[in-house]
């Protein structure tokens, strides 16, 4: 039963498809991402176009027929927005915020992590001390307090997320880079006085990427959850750009009177997204680090 594994990527793909759960989650993720990207086409209504919504259709239960015959698959909210459409648009904002934030966090983490590993000494000491302190405080709390000071806004949420996440990447990158730096070829290259950037980008970067990818999947899920929580708490995205978290918050009052769908369906969307990411992330980690599995 020896699978033909030519390249690391092929081997990775081969291992990945062995788990039906992971494949299902992967497909789920692709569908979710496509729905978010093409929200304008996928959603039957643009929930932010006032011309398309009517307050007369407020808080209709799922499956209702609207005033003008519009079919509310998952019901409507208090302003008469189609929940299904609002959800897809909300998903778009949630995904946008977290992917952008994690992207920047990866970059900051890479730069500072590599710098710490490369320079060593007090640079390393300083960066890692900051990382340690940062990581000893819960991300949600730090982000919450930052936003309390900064105020609401998509850009501010992204900034807060970058600030709470870069440290994970910096630590991972530094660890992986140190392993590599101790290897002979790097020592040799350094003693030949090759330019630092060539070693950094030519040799270190490719080697630190796999663990960064693993952490990044986990952190995207975390970013989505933190953003949703912040928005729920009222310090996240503004009401004009509601993410899934804010949609859920808006439905809270109606939930107590039994109109559950306004909070329920956006939450399901959030949950499915997070489960898919976590399942894929777990599996990727197991493949890249076989010792941990089984």
């Amino acid at each position: 039963m020896t699978a033909r594994a030519d390249t690391p990527l092929a081997r990775f793909a081969g291992d990945f498809v062995k788990s039906p759960t992971a494949v299902a989650a992967g497909i789920g993720l692709i569908v979710i991402a496509l729905a978010a990207i093409f929200a304008g086409t996928v959603a039957p209504q643009n929930p932010y176009d006032l011309a398309q919504i009517t307050i007369l259709d407020g808080t209709l239960p799922p499956g209702s027929e609207g005033f003008d015959g519009f079919h509310y698959l998952l019901g409507s909210d208090e302003q008469g927005r189609d929940m299904y459409s609002a959800m897809i648009y909300g998903l778009r904002i949630s995904l946008f915020v977290s992917f952008v934030a994690v992207g920047f966090a990866v970059m900051v983490g890479l730069v500072l992590g590599l710098l710490a590993a490369w320079r060593g000494g007090w640079v390393d000491g300083l960066i890692m001390r900051i990382v340690d302190i940062q990581l000893s405080f819960p991300a949600l709390l730090v982000a919450l307090l930052l936003l309390a000071a900064l105020g609401k806004g998509v850009d501010k949420v992204i900034l807060a997320l970058i600030l709470v996440q870069w440290a994970y990447f910096a630590r991972t990158v530094r660890g992986a880079a140190l392993v590599e730096i101790r290897k002979d070829y790097v020592t040799a290259a350094r003693s030949l006085a090759l330019p630092g950037w060539r070693i950094l980008f030519g040799h270190l970067l490719p080697n630190v990427l796999p663990p960064v990818i693993v952490i990044a999947t986990v952190q995207v899920a975390n970013a989505i959850a933190i953003e949703a929580s912040l928005s729920f708490l009222g310090v996240g995205v503004p009401i004009t750009e509601p993410s899934l978290g804010l949609l859920i918050a808006n439905g809270f009052d109606y939930l107590l009177s039994g109109r559950y769908w306004i909070s329920f369906y956006p939450g399901v969307a959030l949950l499915v997204t997070l489960v898919c990411i976590n399942v894929v992330g777990d599996h990727v980690r197991d493949i890249l680090n076989p010792r941990l599995s089984r």
Binding site: A225, A228, S229, I248, F252, G267, L270, L271, L274, N278
Partner: peptide
């Protein structure tokens, strides 16, 4: 994976 606040809402 379940966001804490949504889970709370569902419990309620």
């Amino acid at each position: 994976s379940t966001p804490n606040f949504w889970q709370g809402l569902m419990l309620i």
